[in-house]
Amino acid sequence: MQRKKKKLIALWLTLASLLLVLAGCGDDLASQDVLTRVKASNEISWGVKSDTRLFGLMSIKTGKVEGFDVDIATAVSKEIFGDQVQVNIVPVTSNTRMSLLKNGNVDALASTLTITPERKKEVLFSEVYFNAGQALMVKKGSQIKSVKDLTKGTKVIGLQGSNSVENVKKAAPEAKILQLPDAAQAFAALKSGQGDAMTSDNAILYGLAADDSDYEIVGGTFTKEPYGLGINLGQEKFHQAVDQALQTIEADGTYAKIVKKWFGKIDGFDGGVVK
C-alpha cells in the first residue's frame, strides 16, 4: 500500500508539473503579431456586439450576428488578407470587449467603441469609421426631455463598461446610474420601469426604439462619440494595415455601400457617416 501511495504521489506531481510547464510555455496571445498569425492561420477574430440593431445583432433566423460593424470588420479583413480569409465574429458586450481584446480572445474590435483619451492608453484606435453621439431614450410622455432633467432622484440605465455611463456621470452627477450587462437587458429594464431613462449612443438607441413605438429619443445628442476599430497596443503593423484598408474601402465605394445597406432607410444618420 505504501508503494501504491508513492506511485500516486509521483503521478500527481508529474501531472501538476506538466500543467505548470504548459502554463510557462503559453505565449501571450495578445502580443503575437496579428498580421503574421492571421496570414499563417487564415483566420481572424473580431469582437462585435450581438444585441445592437444596425451595428451587430444576432439574427433569430440564421443565428449569425449581422450589422454595420460586422460588414466593416469583414471588408477590412478581406482588404488586408484577401477574400478567402475566414472572419470569426465573436459576440461581446460593452463590459467584456476591452478585456477580451487585451487578453487575446479577439484580434480586434468593431463594437461601437468610442475613441476616448482614457481608452487610448489601453488600445490603438483606427481612424474614425462612424460618428455617433450620446442621447437619452425615454417612454413617450416622460417628464425627462433632456439630460438636464436628470436631477436628484432620477434613475438612468446604462451599459456596463460603456463610455456613455462615464459621460452621464459628468453631465448628471445627481442621477443614480444602473449599469446592466448588455443593451437587450438594459432596454428590458427600462421597460420594466427600473429607470426613468436609458442612455447610450444615438446609434444604439435608434435601433432599440425602432422595436417599440412607445419609446423615443429626446434632447438630441449631448456628446460626440466617434467610433474607431480597436487594436491591441504593440500591434503597430496591423494598426497601419487596418487604417490603410479603411481608406481603401472608403475610396472604392465599399464603405458607402455598407452605409447604404444599414442606414439608407433611417433618417438622421447622415451625420454619422464619415466622408
Partner: peptide, 15 residues
Amino acid sequence: MYFGLPGTLGIRLNT
C-alpha cells in the same frame, strides 16, 4: 476562465 485563462496560459478559449 473566459477572461483570465487566455491572458495567463496563452490559450484562446471560445465561449
